[in-house]
Amino acid sequence: MIRSLRPLGLALLLLLGSLAAAGAVTPDEMLDNPVLEQRARALSAELRCLVCQNQSIDDSNAELARDLRLLVRERLVDGDSDREVLDYVVSRYGEFVLLKPRLSVRTWLLWGTPVMMLLAGALALLAGARGRSRAVDAGAARLSEAEQQELARLLADRNPDT
């Protein structure tokens, strides 16, 4: 009996969880103009909730997310383009508010620095390995004539067949 209730309870829990996310935008926030409302929903999906940080403001129930949704709608009603709305929100809250950051010098540095450090480390290891092999080769070439004769004699004593 209990085993048969577990899947039902899990399904009910998932259903309630999805309804909570779907209910983030309340009817009093929605615009009368369906085109503007659609634009507002699209923009809200691009903006990060600064409280939740892993949700868009469209999905978040946080009070700050509600304020940002209202701000987006207000700017759209005032005639701002989508780009102007995003620029305004970014100017107030920084690039972090965007779920997909814009490609800029800052993002290139952020993503490129680890790659450059990895390449620099690989080059340093390669240079170190080459330096060691040259030092070994140079050490063998520095034997004096007497040392070379002694080495040949020792090798001949060790291997009398040759």
Rank of each mutant, 00 (worst) to 15 (best):
A62F: 09
A21Q: 03
N159T: 05
V51H: 15
L126T: 09
V97W: 05
E95H: 15
E46W: 08
L123S: 15
A124G: 15
C49T: 14
E147Y: 01
R41W: 01
L16E: 12
R102I: 10
L31Q: 13
A129C: 09
V25L: 08
R73E: 09
G79Y: 02
S18Y: 07
V136S: 00
V85S: 12
G17D: 09
T26L: 14
T26C: 06
A21H: 03
D137L: 12
E150H: 04
A122L: 10
V105Q: 08
R69P: 00
A140H: 02
L154H: 13
L126G: 05
T107V: 13
S56A: 12
A20V: 14
M1Q: 09
L110I: 01
D59S: 14
S133I: 07
R92Y: 04
L71Y: 04
L119I: 11
L155H: 04
V25M: 00
G121L: 07
Q53F: 05
V51D: 13
L155D: 15
R66S: 08
L103W: 12
D58I: 02
R102H: 02
A124H: 11
D157F: 15
K100W: 05
Q53G: 09
G79C: 08
P7G: 02
A138R: 14
L110P: 02
R92T: 07
M117C: 13
D161Q: 13
V136W: 10
N33A: 07
V89T: 01
L123Y: 11
L86V: 15
R3H: 03
E145N: 08
M1N: 15
R158D: 11
E147Q: 15
R3S: 08
M30R: 15
A141V: 01
S133V: 03
I57R: 10
Q38L: 06
V105T: 14
G139V: 08
A65D: 00
R73W: 01
R73H: 07
L70W: 01
E84W: 04
D161F: 14
E37D: 01
M30I: 11
Q55A: 03
A146Y: 02
R134V: 08
E150W: 11
A146Q: 04
D80Q: 04
L19P: 04
P101G: 03
Y88A: 15
V35L: 09
L5Y: 03
S60V: 02
S133N: 07
Q55V: 00
A65H: 05
A135R: 10
R66V: 13
R39P: 05
C52N: 13
S133C: 04
L151I: 10
L70Y: 00
D59K: 14
E150G: 00
A122V: 14
L13E: 05
L68Y: 06
D28R: 09
R3Y: 00
D161P: 03
L50K: 11
R106L: 12
D161E: 13
V51A: 11
G121I: 02
P7R: 11
W108V: 11
S60D: 09
V97C: 03
L5P: 02
D32A: 10
R41H: 06
L86R: 11
A141H: 00
Y93V: 10
L154G: 11
D58S: 00
L109F: 13
N61V: 03
M30Y: 06
A124W: 10
R75I: 11
